[in-house]
Structure formats: structure tokens, C-alpha cells
């Protein structure tokens, strides 16, 4: 029967092609890093990973998610390394026994983005708490990530610092979109809304429309990144040697210099601080 021969041929093609789709799997050693949209969308990984590969031969595959989701991927054992930015969440992850040891790597800062017309009248201020209060009092449109990302965690902390109980006080003006930094920026650009963003993603973002930085430089806007090896004792499939080499490289002078060298439009996006014991 002709049909059987044809099915066999189809099956062979399907199997071969799916095998061909992953040629790198067996060859170069590779690790999987669960990280945040900010490190990917800002272009930092595009700069760092070729340098790391040249130095070690290890290939790094990055899955970019919000910090909360990235840590969940680590909890499930689906990543070897997590590289995120929400210290409280990272410490919880470690306390639960999923992370081996947290290493500070670098920082940048959050900035408050808003329409150039600045209806809140906070342009040029360095007091993020006062700025958020002004937005809330005038019920001006504000876009929140709403996705348990590092930026979302930071935003919630800042509302608290501003004395606003955002869970109780939010109204139509407060739009929690449950998506990544880029989607939040696109939404704010379309709605002329305020939002909190990490500086790196903001600088690399192309669709700025009428948005600009309105508040920056407040100490409370500090944004620390940390890296952890997923605990091989919890998940034996974790590639601990290769993963540890990536972490070691990030905090080494070589890796720290590579981070400092990454610039967009002449401006550095991240500032290495692996040596800072308090970070």
C-alpha cells in the first residue's frame, strides 16, 4: 500500500528535521540562564555572552522573563543560573534552598518616565515618593508591570515609601498590564502615562514617542542585580561547573570591565559592583 511508504517517509523527515533543529545540543557545553527582560532588551547579554564564550567556550542560552518568573524557572530546575534584580525575592529564593549563594554583579537605576508635558509637574525632581504622590493625587495615568518582575517589586516598594496603599488606592488611572518592560513602555507611549522603568531598557527602547525621564537620581531608585547558581542538591541536572564558571566570570575583573564597557549612545547602562559587600 502506497500510503504506508509515504507515512514512513514523513516520519523520517519529521524526526530528522527536529534532530537537525538542535545541532548545538551535543557539541559545545552550554548553560541555561533565566534572566530578566531588562538585561536582554537593553542589549547587555548581546555584548557579554560572546566575550564569555570566547573566554571559556561555554555557550549561554538566555530565557528572559520577569524576575519572579525567572526565579520560578530556577525553582523548577529548568535553569542552571538565575540572574535577576529583586534582592528581597532573591534572598527568599536562597532561603528556600533553591539558590546556592547570591553574588552581587552590577547595578543601574530605575527612572520615572512620563509625558514631556508632565501634568504632574514633577520634572527634574529627585524625590520619587513626592512624585508618585502627585501622580496618585491627580489620578494621572500610570502603567504598572504587574508581573512580579524586579521592576514591579521595586515599584510596589516605592509606593509604600510614598505612603500610598496602592492596593487600596488604585483606580482607573492605574493600569497593571501584567507584561514585560517593553510592553509596559509601549503602553505608556500610547497612553501618555507615567511608569517606572529600568534605565537600561529605557535607553535602548526605540518607541519613546512623547515620553521622557521625569524623575531620577533618588537613592531609593537604586536597582541591584544579583546572580545565583541553582542548587544542584535540589536539582541534580543543574550544570554546576559551567554555571559556576559563568558566575565567576561575571564577578571577575574581566567580566566587571565588560559590563562597564557596555554603552548605548555613549552612556553606560550598568555599573559593576561585585566587590560591594552590601549590594
Amino acid at each position: 500500500m502506497k500510503i504506508h511508504r509515504r507515512s514512513l517517509a514523513l516520519m523520517a523527515i519529521a524526526v530528522l528535521s527536529s534532530a537537525a533543529a538542535a545541532p548545538a545540543l551535543a557539541q559545545a557545553p552550554s548553560i541555561l540562564v533565566a534572566s530578566t527582560t531588562s538585561t536582554q532588551d537593553s542589549g547587555l547579554f548581546g555584548h557579554l555572552l560572546p566575550l564569555f564564550k570566547a573566554a571559556t567556550g561555554i555557550e549561554v542560552k538566555v530565557v528572559a522573563l520577569g524576575t519572579g518568573q525567572a526565579l520560578d524557572v530556577g525553582r523548577r530546575g529548568d535553569a542552571d543560573v538565575v540572574f535577576v534584580h529583586a534582592r528581597s525575592e532573591e534572598e527568599k529564593f536562597q532561603a528556600e534552598g533553591f539558590g546556592v549563594r547570591r553574588h552581587p554583579v552590577m547595578y543601574n537605576d530605575f527612572v520615572l518616565i512620563g509625558p514631556k508635558s508632565d501634568p504632574a509637574g514633577v520634572q527634574g525632581s529627585t524625590d520619587i515618593a513626592a512624585a508618585l504622590r502627585a501622580i496618585k493625587d491627580r489620578k494621572l495615568p500610570f502603567v504598572s508591570r504587574g508581573d512580579r518582575s524586579g521592576t514591579h517589586v521595586a515599584e510596589l516598594r516605592l509606593w509604600k515609601d510614598a505612603g500610598v496603599d496602592i492596593a487600596a488606592d488604585k483606580g482607573d488611572w492605574y493600569k497593571a498590564i501584567g507584561q514585560g518592560m517593553g510592553a509596559a513602555l509601549n503602553t505608556a507611549a500610547a497612553a501618555n502615562a507615567y511608569l517606572l522603568a529600568d534605565r537600561g531598557t529605557w535607553l535602548a527602547f526605540r518607541n519613546k514617542a512623547d515620553l521622557a525621564i521625569v524623575v531620577q537620581g533618588d537613592k531609593r531608585l537604586f536597582n541591584q542585580y544579583g546572580v545565583m547558581l541553582v542548587n544542584p542538591a535540589r536539582h541534580p541536572t543543574v550544570k554546576k561547573e559551567a554555571g559556576q564558571r559563568f558566575i565567576d566570570w561575571l564577578v571577575s575583573p574581566q567580566g566587571q570591565r565588560a559590563i562597564a564597557d557596555y554603552k548605548v549612545g555613549g552612556e553606560p547602562l550598568f555599573f559593576p559592583n561585585a566587590g560591594d559587600p552590601n549590594a
Binding site: A24, T37, D41, V62, N186, A189, A204
Partner: peptide
């Protein structure tokens, strides 16, 4: 797939990524 560059990035996930980078 995780939208990993060079491994699991396809047309549609690349479109999603470029949209999130604001490169409409």
C-alpha cells in the same frame, strides 16, 4: 522554547521581542 537567541527564536517570538524593545 524560551525565545533563546540562536536556539529557539522563531519568527513570531522575534516579532514579540522586537515589539517589546519598541522597534515597531
Amino acid at each position: 522554547g524560551g525565545n533563546i537567541e540562536g536556539h529557539t527564536r522563531t519568527m513570531t517570538t522575534a516579532i514579540a521581542l522586537e515589539t517589546s524593545k519598541g522597534d515597531l
